[in-house]
Design a protein around this nucleic acid. Structure first.
Lengths: 351, 351
DNA sequence: CGGAATTGCTGTAACGATACAGCAGAGTAG
DNA sequence: CTACTCTGCTGTATCGTTACAGCAATTCCG
């Protein structure tokens, strides 16, 4: 700065320092400076140091558009949240995912673009544009409905994409998820085997979502295996639908166990049952699914399945960068399954 | 393209359709096509229609790097979360903000870039780079510590920035917030006036944050006005610090009211007091602040101040786009204050 | 010691889009 | 009939960066 010892304007005009300015400063060509900053092999060690120093002093920051245009790489990834998912998944799920993704993206110095869809109509267009405009190098897609055309198309178009969460297995897709069937089986097992409940109801998620389907199937398998009578009521992952399900449960005689496909519905059901005078957890066991925060703070606290959303997101992002880097995942390698854990609290009847 | 009339591959390589392809298709120059798609005034109506149709057919999507480079505009905004805030604010706050920002950004067809800071060291560099690289046109900054140098610098550097939340008033900055003092006064007033509590404790947030300072000041003003004895315990907005504060509260005789600077601390304190055999809310009133979700689901549900985070974020984003568009906010106009609301539930002693 | 390899830089040509000057041709006015 | 204004397009320069060919020096090697 203090070139002439003059008072220079303190307001250095943002984003105006280009490679040429740096080049002039060190008396080199623009390309030499570019190569120096990229640590190219054909530039002298001492020159690199001089260039870096000058760049630092001038406050040079690579213009992302220029780089993206020429290098055909945006150094950015998108987190795509189909509108359906946005509605279906609560806030907390998304937060965990976001934490994991930002973490991984940050450590690669990549930017993170959030892409949600405004409405069903322009749904496809939204992420399609993001991908095709070249503003990101790849995307993480959080669970969409099983019949989501756009996602399937996105995957088959060859752009680097990693699916996150309970997905219909698109054979060509790379995905990170959990074993919803097994986890739901374990939760149900705890209710019917460990607590001896004989008549259980499952409050499922919307059954056009793979996670909802799998959790229901795990429930049914366990109920059948242990010879409990059971029924499935379809909800939509919202607290209100848990409440509604609890109303219908009360019309049924002798229900002593409720397995919900997520914690919000479990909470809705629990609150309704308690309000209507049922003794939870003594007479009725309730378990949830997710453990994204809610289950821990209710009274009684909800026994649930911990879904490692943050780790999933981190792994998904790592794989995405691998994909972008040219790595190809094939066969079973393409589908990572992370372990879940039954978190025993009080809503099931445990002390 | 179809130079030899050969069968071309049906798998159109993603993001490969450029303006030139469209131009060739309709038999126009590249610039004509560009102007047509931008709805320029010097292009014939019928030509525009033909161009749009061809672009649609070919699946043309504007390359964002090309546009950004030439048009000096990224059509993207950043949501900057200083690491300090990320720690200080819970997940739910951020989610509400995110919802508001995405909404507003979506409706302007702008992309949203999330920028969190990895660590304290490179903290400044992180958002500095985002801004200077030209990859966004402006930024929303969620509340930082009062002494955050980087933010002040960012604001004075002239890039479009809107501060969100309880900020030290940087005179030149555009901000959107609430009246923390008044809201905290109202919450405290409810405890001391409406419930007749005479010895109240405030669990504050970290006092290097303006919101924490203001909420404490509102508490003190109300306590003094109604002649209650009071004390302030500093927490850090985390549930654990509410728990810790409750421990210290129990060493003090006769405390019958707790005003926490957020719901998580209120919950931590409430849970600890209940566990230690105190009758909340009959003997001790507790109120929180925020109403981002937690307060509604606890038992008893927490009386709190609703902070309209989503609306704040939406307004902040709208103002950011105004700034980017050249609008200047001066004087009081620069600082929007949204109304809060006391949400009365059971933790204060109301039925 | 002559030719080959290496080192360290320069110069040029893109990447894709857009702003703007320019330029035909048609219409209009005096 | 000249001079002017529109209208609707073409052509060119440019945004900032990077890939790559080229080209002097210098070093290496048998």
């Amino acid at each position: 700065m203090e070139v002439l010892g003059l008072m220079t304007a303190p307001k250095m005009d943002v984003a105006k320092v280009t490679l040429r300015d740096v080049a002039e400063r060190v008396g080199l060509s623009v390309s030499a400076v570019s190569q120096a900053l990229l640590d190219g092999p054909r530039i002298g060690t001492e020159t690199k140091a001089r260039v870096r120093e000058a760049a630092e002093e001038l406050g040079y920051v690579t213009n992302s558009a220029g780089r993206a245009l020429r290098a055909r790489r945006a150094d950015a990834v998108a987190l795509i949240v189909p509108n359906t998912s946005q509605h279906v998944f609560g806030h907390s799920y998304f937060m965990h995912v976001l934490t994991g993704v930002t973490d991984a993206a940050n450590s690669r110095e990549a930017q993170l673009v959030i892409s949600t869809n405004v409405d069903e109509q322009h749904g496809k267009a939204a992420y399609d544009r993001v991908m095709r405009s070249g503003s990101v190098d790849g995307a993480i897609v959080t669970s969409a409905a099983v019949d989501d055309e756009g996602i399937a198309q996105l995957v088959s178009s060859g752009v680097p994409v990693v699916l996150l969460g309970g997905f219909p297995v698109l054979p060509d897709a790379v995905s990170v998820g959990i074993d919803d069937v097994a986890a739901s089986y374990a939760a149900t097992e705890h209710v019917v085997r460990d607590h001896g409940r004989r008549s259980v109801v499952h409050i499922s998620g919307p059954l056009d979502h793979q996670a909802a389907i799998d959790r229901r199937d795990g429930f049914i398998a366990a109920a059948e295996h242990y010879g409990a009578t059971f029924e499935v009521v379809e909800g939509d992952f919202d607290e209100e639908s848990g409440d509604a399900a609890a109303v219908s449960i009360q019309r049924r005689e002798g229900v002593d166990g409720v397995v919900a496909a997520n914690d919000e519905m479990a909470f809705g059901a629990m609150r309704r049952l308690a309000a209507d005078g049922h003794d939870v957890p003594r007479r009725i066991s309730i378990v949830g699914f997710d453990d994204f925060g809610l289950a821990r703070v209710t009274t009684p606290a909800i026994t649930t399945v911990r879904v490692p959303a943050e780790e999933m997101a981190r792994l998904a992002t790592d794989r995405l960068f691998d994909l972008i880097g040219g790595v190809r995942f094939t066969g079973p390698d393409a589908h990572a399954v992370l372990p879940t854990e039954l978190v025993v609290r009080q809503s099931c009847g445990c002390p």
